[in-house]
């Protein structure tokens, strides 16, 4: 069974577009992390598509597994940073990280 290349490619672009839009619009740091995660899903789907249509199922699985590991670590470290920002500023807004000092 195969998913059409056009439909899957549309889904990839919509996932990336939705993630980028939320990154630009949202000020909540946790929502920003969720948007990054959605974009990563789009990239994973693109890799799945590439592996399927180039018949490189084994190699692409190794790449996807490595990517999932890196993805989890990125989210863990970023979540730690968000919590430390919340403890220091008392807010999850990205505006709370802005300073009035120059430089």
């Amino acid at each position: 069974m195969s998913l059409g290349i056009e439909l899957t490619f549309f889904a990839v672009i919509l996932l990336l577009a939705g993630g980028i839009y939320t990154l630009l619009v949202s000020k909540n740091l946790v929502r920003t992390l969720i948007a990054i995660e959605v974009m990563m899903k789009g990239v994973t789907l693109m890799l799945v598509l590439a592996g399927y249509f180039t018949h490189q199922l084994v190699k692409i699985q190794a790449v996807i597994i490595s990517m999932i590991v890196v993805e989890v670590v990125v989210i863990t470290v970023a979540a730690g940073i968000v919590i430390s920002i919340y403890r220091n500023n008392g807010s999850l807004s990205s505006k709370s990280t802005e300073t009035d000092e120059e430089g």
């Binding site: 799945v48 592996g51 996807i64 999932i68 989890v72 919590i83």
Partner: peptide
């Protein structure tokens, strides 16, 4: 369905499981 079964197992266990737990614990800590 695209034949990448091992990656599918990783995606289901790590991304659908672990990452969700991380997000929910982050939200509950704030």
């Amino acid at each position: 369905l695209m034949g990448q079964t091992l990656a599918a197992v990783f995606e289901l266990s790590v991304c659908a499981g672990l990452v969700t737990v991380l997000f929910i614990s982050t939200v509950s800590m704030t």
